[in-house]
Design a binder for these strands. Structure first.
Lengths: 250, 250
DNA sequence: CAGCATGATGTTGTGCACAACATAAGAAGC
DNA sequence: GCTTCTTATGTTGTGCACAACATCATGCTG
């Protein structure tokens, strides 16, 4: 199938910035999409990604796809092996202990370093997330939980203007974002535990929102820190209880 | 040589096998070389790197070179603009304030999180750096200072076993490594200031070496933290004094 | 002579074909 | 029947040619 040059170019993202973001726009779009799929376990850990399939899906050649895969590999989410394939990184709770150990500290730094001035719009966004959170508690869906958790992370991360800190926190977050869904998928029958996770997260969002309302970003950081640590502790416990031998062969 | 089926892991990243290394070896070699050149100001900030030249130098095509450039761009050391070229990121003291703000905190974390067990070999490496430091003080050379500083960073970074922390610290370090050389190149005539920098760094190495000898990695982290902060403070002051209008047009 | 349009030139981004590599299947030998 | 070598197949890595894009020079026009 031959692709029209002038015709397909405009289809990209007309509402945004068509002229400024030509090639870079495609790159970001593919990158964000693949990262989301990996973190939402649409691509299971250990599964192979074929560059040609991705190229066909995004209507581009293998070359730009490979650029994205290289970046994703640098982020630690993929691993390309010559002659084998590009496989999604497998995640282990013990290996993520170091990442969490660092995320805990960075969360506190977000509330401490170069704080963002709190305005009404920022508070409104926090309250919006909290509302979505309340709604989620009634309808237990691990996937929507992950999405809200993701949005909340970005919002919390915007509490600091320190660009490197934000970038690093984001990177580490996406390295650990999958572990909750993975653990939840194993404990799917235990609705009770998942509900506990939901309400716990709801409390975290509520507390942090309140702290932001009071303009106390340091307190928000401390709350976030404590919740990240406890969340990992619960995941670790559930992982040991659920049995390490997960029957997830490719 | 037949390879076991169960052993999926190949040579991976064997340290010290230059000739037999496959694609990944070339990649690492080119990456390390370019990064070193950027941080040693062999490639001045703002200068353009032509992919074809690099391809010819490393005896490869443009394709693997572009892989390296993409990673370097992700690290923040390069910036590729379509139709213009791949230019070395310009560094400004004010923009690096956030990076230093974070590096200061991470330095303390290196001495706090997952400390490496201190053995005789580790102490010996610190003493070796200290010896090179003493030698450097007698022969003032900003370039060798940067190299020793680089080696010392890697050594200090090895005080923690937290892999993400090490990786992030390394990344941030290389983002800031150039600023000292850049500032020093402007104040080249002020030999006295540079000598002060040398002796200050010598004290830092001495103090941290002593702390490591005592097995007090937390103290090493605190010393490191203080010195990073003071170093940036001096650079900032020198930058303002030397005049922000650096006549370094390409 | 100033200002602007237009082409020339050089760069990165993309597409495509082939090489390098690893694995899996199949056949030969014991 | 089992092992082992060979072959087939599929994947990523590389090389090369062209397109997209930006800048600069040049000529035209006012």
């Amino acid at each position: 199938m031959r692709r029209e040059r002038t015709g397909l170019m405009t289809v990209d993202q007309g509402a945004g910035r068509p002229a400024e973001e030509g090639a870079r726009g495609r790159f970001e779009r593919i990158y964000q999409t693949l990262r989301m799929r990996i973190c939402l376990l649409d691509y299971a850990p250990g599964s192979r990604l074929r560059e040609e399939d991705l190229a066909e899906e995004f209507r581009v050649s293998r070359t730009p796809v490979r650029r994205v895969l290289v970046k994703l590999e640098a982020e630690g989410l993929l691993r390309s092996v010559h002659g084998v394939g590009t496989i999604v990184t497998d995640i282990e709770v013990d290996a993520l202990a170091q990442v969490y150990e660092l995320r805990v500290e960075l969360a506190e730094l977000v509330g401490k370093l170069s704080p963002t001035p709190v305005d009404a719009a920022l508070i409104a966004r926090f309250r919006e997330i909290r509302a979505r959170c309340d709604e989620m508690v009634h309808e237990g869906d691990p996937r929507t939980f992950s999405r809200i958790n993701m949005d909340f992370f970005h919002l919390f991360n915007s509490l600091t203007t320190n660009a490197p800190l934000r970038e690093i926190s984001e990177r580490l977050y996406y390295q650990t974002a999958r572990i909750w869904l993975k653990a939840a998928s194993r404990l799917k029958n235990f609705e009770e535990l998942i509900h506990t996770e939901f309400t716990t997260f709801q409390r975290e969002v509520t507390d942090i929102t309140e702290a932001v309302e009071h303009g106390d970003l340091a307190a928000a950081g401390h709350v976030r820190r404590a919740h990240i640590a406890m969340s990992f502790s619960r995941i670790r416990k559930a992982s040991k209880a659920g049995g390490p031998g997960g029957a997830d062969a490719d």
